[in-house]
Simulated scan of single mutants.
Amino acid sequence: MKVTYTIAALAGSALAAPKAEKSPRAPAAACSSAVTLDASTNVWQNYKLHANPFYRDEVNKAVDAISDSSLKASAAKVADVGSFLWIDTIENIAKVQPAIDDTPCSDILGLVIYDLPGRDCAAKASNGELKYNELDKYKTQYIDPIVKLLQGAPNTAFALLIEPDSLPNLVTNADLQTCKDSASSYRDGVAYALKSLNLPNVVMYIDAGHGGWLGWDANLKPGAEELAKAYKAADSPKQVRGFSTNIAGWNAWDLSPGEFSTASDAKYNSCQNEKIYVQKFSAALKTAGMPNYAIVDTGRNAVTGLRAEWGDWCNVDGAGFGVRPTATTGEPQADAFVWGKPGGESDGTSDTGATRYDSFCGKDDAFKPSPEAGTWNQAYFEMLLKNASPAF
């Protein structure tokens, strides 16, 4: 019986993406007064996920590189889709203020907090810049400057996705020495982030992997308890709304039977789609004593049946853009579908000679060639566009 997988990082933007200049457009109409978000409610019903200027510029450059007029017109529409901005290095904190300046009062700016010491302890493609014992640097040079920026923008609404992969790795990959080394920094770092970023204009979601990771029957309870432990260590901050799932992932929302329902070990995982996972993990979180509403990444999950295993995470070949961000999910515990991963940015390199090469990026179901994590892959973007459902 196998109920845990060595699932590597989702590799959102593990290295600084190429710097982009802001596209010319009308200045944002900022709010005239301070924003207060009630995290006991679904804020996505009142705000639209902002189409941040950095992803928009990546897409606009991609559009310029497309010669087919029909595809070009479809590609241009992607620039207007809201997506989360990954603050994956100390250097990339510099992206926050321009994104704030670009955000109108009608929108909520999504930021991924993603720079824990020893980040992605079960992967190579998205390892972070901080060593496992550099917790103080994480606090003072990463979290504290972000806090200052958000405090300086009280008239802007923020949705924060807290440290993808971190706590899930402590549940399923605790036997790896790298994860053992990182465990205390993960727990303390997440708690520090939650406590420090508990601002009135912020709503936070702690990452919980996906249904093929913590959705195994044996992982649901310990997974929920791991998240709840960090929440309580942060003194139960009121701006925490719940958890995020499928970030940079591929799982379908409500496919039935599930993508891996015929696998030999399927009987040990009742969460065969993200909807079931949200329902079950939400219930486990409630028992563990933590807010239990979810946001789900649908950015690249339009096509199913592409992966050989649940844990195949790197640049899945044949994928397509999924449902656009919306608060209409049909599931009371799911606040919104979001685009967490900027579609077109690589999960990791397929170059076997690269220092950051991860074997998952060389699997048969991974797109090749692919560049380093976080850098643009034009061919992959065009594939996502052609396979989009709904189509652009």
Rank of each mutant, 00 (worst) to 15 (best):
A125F: 00
N201K: 11
L176N: 07
L37V: 07
S264N: 13
G344K: 10
S74L: 10
W310H: 15
I295A: 09
D207M: 02
R324S: 11
E345F: 14
D265L: 04
Y380P: 00
P104I: 00
L37Y: 07
A30Q: 14
A30S: 15
Y5D: 10
N269S: 08
V203G: 07
Q45S: 11
E309H: 15
R300I: 01
T328D: 14
V303C: 11
K386H: 00
I143F: 04
A75D: 07
D351E: 15
A234M: 12
L197F: 08
S359K: 15
T328Q: 14
F337W: 13
D217L: 09
L176H: 04
L194A: 04
Q45Y: 01
Q333D: 14
D235L: 01
T36C: 04
V203I: 14
P164A: 04
L160K: 06
V59S: 03
N92S: 14
L170R: 00
K61V: 04
W253C: 00
A391Y: 15
A183C: 00
A302C: 07
A39R: 05
A391S: 15
S69N: 12
G289E: 02
D297W: 09
Q177L: 11
G189K: 05
S182L: 00
C314H: 06
D88I: 00
T103K: 09
R300P: 00
I90L: 05
G343Y: 08
A14K: 00
T326D: 04
G340Q: 07
P145W: 05
P257M: 06
E21F: 08
F158I: 03
T326R: 09
T375Q: 12
G289N: 08
F381G: 01
E259L: 12
V338P: 01
N92L: 11
K124L: 06
T304W: 09
S33H: 15
V323L: 13
V203F: 05
P291M: 12
N169D: 12
L176A: 05
L167V: 06
Q141R: 10
G311R: 14
Y192M: 06
